Lab assay of single mutants.
Amino acid sequence: DVEPGKFYKGVVTRIEKYGAFINLNEQVRGLLRPRDMISLRAENLNVGDEIIVQAIDVRPEKREIDFKYIP
């Protein structure tokens, strides 16, 4: 289970104008929005990159997770 405030290692699987999709594993995926990329620009991300993200909002009923990148 993903808990708000905890840090996780994930892999960038898709990049859109509104953010990057980060997979923690095959069943868990969330969104890293540009406003939550402190000191990281979306254009510096590539599909396949491994990054550490913090879960900031977890909505299990919608199967949605928002992440924040903190260097």
Rank of each mutant, 00 (worst) to 15 (best):
I70L: 11
I56R: 05
I51G: 00
E64S: 06
I56H: 06
P71N: 08
I56G: 04
F21V: 11
D57Y: 13
Q54L: 15
A55P: 02
N46E: 12
F67E: 03
N25D: 08
E26N: 14
D66F: 14
K9A: 07
A20H: 04
P71G: 14
V28C: 09
R63L: 11
G5E: 03
L31S: 04
I52E: 04
D36N: 14
D49M: 14
L31W: 07
V53L: 07
E3D: 07
L32I: 07
L32Q: 02
Y8G: 00
E50T: 15
F7T: 05
K9I: 13
V47W: 03
F21Q: 04
K62Y: 08
N23D: 10
V47K: 02
I70Q: 08
G5K: 03
G5T: 03
M37C: 09
Y18E: 08
I52V: 12
P71A: 13
R63N: 15
N44I: 10
G48Q: 01
Q27M: 11
E50V: 15
F21M: 07
K62M: 11
E16L: 10
Y8M: 01
D66G: 07
R14F: 06
I38Q: 12
M37W: 06
E43D: 13
R63T: 07
I65L: 05
L24S: 01
I65S: 03
Q54K: 08
G5M: 08
D66E: 08
D49S: 06
V2I: 15
V28F: 08
K6W: 05
L45S: 00
E43N: 12
V12C: 07
P71D: 11
T13R: 03
A55L: 06
Y18H: 06
K68A: 15
E61G: 12
K17Q: 11
V28G: 04
E64L: 13
K9W: 13
K9E: 04
G10T: 00
L40P: 03
Q54N: 03
D57T: 12
P60D: 06
V12L: 05
K9Y: 09
I22K: 00
I70P: 03
K68F: 08
I38N: 13
L32C: 08
D36E: 06
I70G: 05
I38W: 07
E3I: 15
N23S: 14
F7L: 08
I70T: 09
N44W: 14
G19L: 08
G30M: 06
I51N: 00
A42C: 13
P4L: 14
F67L: 09
E50D: 08
I70C: 10
M37V: 07
E64F: 13
E16K: 07
E50M: 14
I56P: 01
I65P: 04
I38E: 11
I22M: 01
R41W: 11
V53Q: 00
R35T: 10
N25C: 10
E43F: 13
P34E: 12
I15G: 00
R59A: 03
F21D: 01
I22H: 00
D36Q: 07
A20F: 13
G48H: 02
N23P: 00
F67N: 03
E61L: 09
E26D: 14
N44S: 14
R33S: 06
D1G: 13
D1W: 15
K17D: 09
R29P: 04
R29Q: 15
I70Y: 12
I15E: 00
L32S: 02
P4V: 15
Y8R: 00
R63G: 15
K62Q: 11
I56M: 11
R41S: 11
I51M: 04
N46W: 11
A20P: 02
I15R: 02
K9N: 05
T13D: 04
E50G: 06
E26M: 11
I22Y: 01
D57H: 15
Y8S: 00
A42L: 15
N25H: 07
G10M: 05
R33K: 09
N44A: 13
I38D: 10
Y69L: 07
G5N: 05
L24F: 05
V53G: 00
K17N: 09
E16R: 07
V2D: 02
E64Y: 14
G19S: 04
L31Q: 04
R35E: 11
I38S: 11
I51K: 00
M37N: 07
I52A: 02
L45G: 01
V2K: 02
V11N: 02
V2G: 02
Q54S: 04
F67W: 09
V2L: 08
R41Y: 10
G19A: 05
F7M: 08
K6I: 06
L45W: 03
Y18P: 01
I22F: 07
E3T: 13
K68Q: 08
E3H: 13
E64V: 07
F67M: 04
K62W: 07
E64K: 06
P60I: 09
R35C: 12
E26A: 14
A55S: 02
P34K: 15
K6H: 10
E50F: 15
E64R: 11
K9L: 11
R29A: 11
I38V: 12
L32N: 03
G19W: 07
E26V: 12
V47D: 02
V28T: 11
V47P: 05
V58K: 03
E50Y: 15
D57E: 14
R59C: 08
Y69C: 08
E61D: 14
K17I: 11
V12K: 00
R33G: 06
L40H: 06
M37E: 04
E64A: 05
R33F: 05
Q27R: 14
R63F: 13
V28W: 15
R14K: 10
K62L: 13
R41N: 11
E50Q: 13
Q27S: 13
A20N: 01
G30K: 03
R14T: 04
I56W: 08
D49E: 05
Y8T: 01
R41I: 11
A20Y: 13
E16S: 13
E26I: 10
R33M: 06
I65W: 09
I65G: 03
V58W: 08
K6G: 07
G5A: 02
G48L: 03
I52Y: 10
Y18L: 06
F7G: 01
D49T: 05
S39K: 12
G30S: 15
G48K: 01
D49A: 06
V28M: 07
D49C: 08
A55Q: 02
V47S: 01
D57A: 15
E3Y: 11
K17S: 12
V2C: 07
V11E: 03
R41E: 10
E61H: 12
V28E: 05
N44V: 10
F7I: 08
N44R: 12
Q27V: 13
F67G: 03
K17P: 13
N25Y: 08
E61W: 10
G10V: 10
N44F: 12
L32V: 05
L40V: 08
A20T: 08
G5V: 03
I51D: 00
I52C: 15
V47H: 02
M37L: 07
D36G: 07
I38G: 15
A55M: 04
N25M: 06
Y18K: 06
R14M: 06
I22T: 01
R14L: 07
R41D: 10
R35N: 10
N44D: 15
G10F: 05
P60S: 09
A42S: 11
V58T: 05
K62R: 12
P71Y: 08
E50S: 13
R29S: 13
Y69R: 02
Q27C: 14
R35A: 12
I22Q: 00
G48D: 02
R14Q: 11
K6E: 06
L31A: 02
N23K: 13
K68L: 09
L45F: 06
L45C: 09
G30D: 02
R33H: 06
E43I: 13
E64G: 06
